[in-house]
Design a protein around this nucleic acid. Structure first.
Lengths: 153, 153
DNA sequence: TATTGTTATACTCTATAACTATA
DNA sequence: TATAGTTATAGAGTATAACAATA
């Protein structure tokens, strides 16, 4: 098989994988009454602990105004609260409620379950091959994206 | 390395890949003044040739009303036209303009470029490893998704 | 003066339900 | 009666710009 054909085959797999993963993610979020964007915010909050909206806006690469809306929704549905920032009276700290914390922890479990679904019973050799193949692909994709992002300031 | 650790590593790669791919797709679409959803419609139209909105709605897994809006936008920006269906006067055929056709063909080129970015210079062996690793992952993910989809009728 | 978050406004994507014209 | 596409309505996600309170 020629290289260009192999490229097309593997790229097809990568593209399908990307589509299916995003479907899978979306479905898991909906399970808990969350939208994808709100779940993403919860995930970042889980990673960082109580954060200002400014920090969340940067983490999500989204406008501050947008974070206002997402946090509004999460407050209304009982996932997070807005607490006063201890030293900066302009800022608010977004914090988990007990329920929000619980759901966020389930994200970790969901990840483990997904890993089990995808890889259970795969040989160590096959897994290593996958890892070594994906590594350079990711590096190149990261590089390509940061280039094109830098091009438009 | 234990299997569960390997799982976590590879799953991390897969998740990042999925996020980066969707970023890459989004950026390429924007390049031509398109939104992601409209570009997706164009892609399906490119695959199928002139199609009714009903067919597009099913292909995109989206409501007929939504297709009306997407086609409205694409007509307004000169990518497609609505033509009368030759035998069914209820239906309209969505067809490319010359400009739309041209952009849709560029999608194919973009795919080739992306393949080049991701895989150029990779050994045949590494590529084969990647392909053989991704195959079963995709199968399992497809199966998992069709299961959960079937669960909620 | 600069930063945090908000209000104001607008556009895209999405859905369901009711309706028109046709099959 | 069923289907193709529309109007009507609604909600989420996104953005920019102007503004208040605070740093």
């Amino acid at each position: 098989m020629r290289a260009s054909e192999r490229y097309a085959t593997v790229l097809g797999q990568v593209l399908e994988l990307s589509v299916l993963m995003s479907q899978d993610m979306t479905q898991s979020f909906e399970r808990d009454g969350l939208t994808p964007s709100r779940a993403h915010l919860l995930w970042e909050l889980h990673e960082r602990g109580p954060s200002t909206q400014r920090v969340l806006a940067e983490a999500l690469d989204v406008s501050p105004r947008n974070v206002t809306g997402l946090v509004d929704g999460l407050v209304a549905t009982g996932f997070v609260t807005r607490e006063p920032h201890p030293t900066d009276r302009r800022a608010t700290l977004v914090c988990f409620t007990a329920h929000g914390e619980h759901i966020a922890k389930q994200f970790d479990d969901g990840r483990d379950e997904l890993a089990e679904v995808l890889f259970a019973g795969m040989s160590e050799r096959r897994l290593a091959g996958l890892e070594k193949g994906l590594g350079p692909v990711l590096e190149r994709l990261r590089a390509a994206l940061s280039e094109t992002k830098g091009e438009r300031p």
